[in-house]
Design a protein around this nucleic acid. Sequence first.
DNA 1: ATTAAAATCACCCAAAAGTGTGAAGGAAAA
DNA 2: TTTTCCTTCACACTTTTGGGTGATTTTAAT
Lengths: 159, 159
Amino acid sequence: MKFGVPLKTKHKEILMYCVSMALILFLLKWLEVHFIVFNYRLDLFIGAIAILFTVLGIWLALKLVKPKVETRIIEKEVYIDNSTQTEIDEQEITKLGISKRELDVLNLMATGFSNEEIAEKLFISLNTVKTHASNIFLKLNVKRRTMAVEKAKRMKIIH
Amino acid sequence: MKFGVPLKTKHKEILMYCVSMALILFLLKWLEVHFIVFNYRLDLFIGAIAILFTVLGIWLALKLVKPKVETRIIEKEVYIDNSTQTEIDEQEITKLGISKRELDVLNLMATGFSNEEIAEKLFISLNTVKTHASNIFLKLNVKRRTMAVEKAKRMKIIH
DNA sequence: ATTAAAATCACCCAAAAGTGTGAAGGAAAA
DNA sequence: TTTTCCTTCACACTTTTGGGTGATTTTAAT
C-alpha cells in the first residue's frame, strides 16, 4: 500500500481514526449496557459493528491511499518538415500562462477535433473542454478556435 | 465514491464482500458459542470484529477505487519532404475539383476568419460563404473547418 | 446556341462552438 | 495554515457553423 499524503497528515488521519474508533466502541459499550436488547440480539449487534467498521475502513482507505495512476496515451501525428525544425517555445507557453491541460486541448484542436471528440479523448466532460477552450482564447487573445490554432502555430506553442 | 471497474466486475466484488462477511459473521457466531471466553470479554470480541472489518473495508476500497487517469499526448513524428515544402500542389487542387472561389474561402478560413468576416472580405453574402465552405468540406471529406484547414495544409493546398 | 460548371444567394433546421457565472476539490506554493 | 492556481463540471444563453434544398445568374466550353 502506498501513501500519497505527507507523513504528518497521514498520522493525523490515523490518529483521528483511532480516536473515532475508541469513541464508537465506547458508545457501543454504553449502548450495550443500557439496552440489553443487544444481548439478546448479539448477531444484529455484531453485524452493525461489522458494517460500521467496514464503512470506516473504506473511508480510511479512500483518505489515505494514493490512487493508482493509469496512463492513457493518445498519439498525435505531427508533420514536420526537415528544414524548418519547429521547436516548441516553452518560454512562450509559460509566459502566456497556458497550463498543461489547456495545451492538451489546444493540440487536439489543432488536429481538427470537435470539442466533443476532445472531451472523449481526454476523458473529461464537454463543459470542461469548453472552459479550457475559453481560457485558451483569452490567453491567446483570439475569438475562435481556428484563430487560436493559427496563432499558436505561429508562436510555436504547437506544431 | 466512484468506481473504475466495469459494472459486472463491481457487482462481483460487492457480492464477494457480502458472502465473505456472512461467512465471517457465521464463523464468529460459532466461535462465540464454543468459546464462552468471549462472553466474558465482549469488549475484546467487539474490538476484534471492528479491526477485522476495518481491514475488510480498506481492502474493499482498494479493490474498487477508480485509478487516476493521466492523459498524455505523444507525438508521432512524420517527416515530410522539404523540397516541395512551400510549393502549392496545384494538381491536388484540380484533382479534388476545388474551384478558385472555394480556395479563396479556404485560405481565409485557414487564417482564422469567421464566415461573416470572409463574406465581408470577399464581398459576398454569408450564405455564399457557407455554400463554398460546405463544398470544401465535401471535397476534402471533412466535417469541420478546423479539420479542413489541417488537411489542406497537409496536402499543400494552402500554406 | 446549348450545355455545363461555377458562383451567387435564400431559408430552415440542427449541431457545435463560445460566453458568463458559479462552484468544488486537489495540488503546490507561500 | 492559508492562499493560489489548476482542473473539473454545470447550466443557461448566444452566436457560429454546417447540412440540405432549391433557385438564379455568370462564365466557359462544346
